[in-house]
Simulated scan of single mutants.
Amino acid sequence: MLASLSTMMSHGFKSSKQDFIFGPWKVTAAKNHIMKSKDIERLAEEMNMPSLPEMLFGDNILRIQHMDGYGIEFNAIDALKRVNNMEDAVKVACAQEWQESRADSEHSKEVVRPYDWTYTTDYRGTLIGEVVQVTETAERIDMEKLKAREQIMFFDDVLLFEDELHDHGVSMISVKIRVMPTSFFLLLRFFLRVDGVLIRINDTRLYYEAGKNYMLREFSTREKKIAELKNVPAALYTDPNEIAQHLTLKLMVCEKLELPMTEPQTAADNCLQ
Score class of each variant (00 low, 15 high):
A103R: 12
M172Q: 03
L127Y: 05
Q245C: 04
E46N: 12
R124F: 12
K91Q: 12
Q96W: 08
P50A: 01
W25R: 05
K230A: 13
L188P: 00
M49I: 10
A76S: 12
G169S: 07
Y214W: 10
P50H: 09
Y214L: 10
T120G: 14
V179Y: 04
V170Y: 02
E106C: 13
V134C: 06
H166A: 12
L247S: 04
V194H: 02
N32P: 00
T121K: 04
K225P: 00
L52T: 11
E263R: 09
M8S: 09
V112E: 06
F20R: 04
M55N: 13
V158R: 02
I61F: 03
E87P: 02
S174Y: 02
E258V: 02
R205W: 10
S171C: 09
L187T: 15
L192K: 04
F161E: 04
S4H: 09
S16M: 14
I201A: 01
S37C: 01
E130L: 07
T28H: 01
L146S: 09
V179L: 08
Q96C: 14
M47K: 15
Y70T: 00
H11A: 08
I141T: 02
R189Q: 14
C94A: 15
L216V: 09
E150N: 09
N241C: 08
F154P: 00
E97T: 06
L251D: 15
V92C: 02
Y119F: 13
K145T: 06
K147T: 11
E223N: 11
L146T: 10
Q273F: 11
D59W: 06
P24Q: 02
I243Y: 00
L198V: 01
V253Q: 13
L249K: 10
G71K: 08
N231R: 04
S10H: 13
L259R: 07
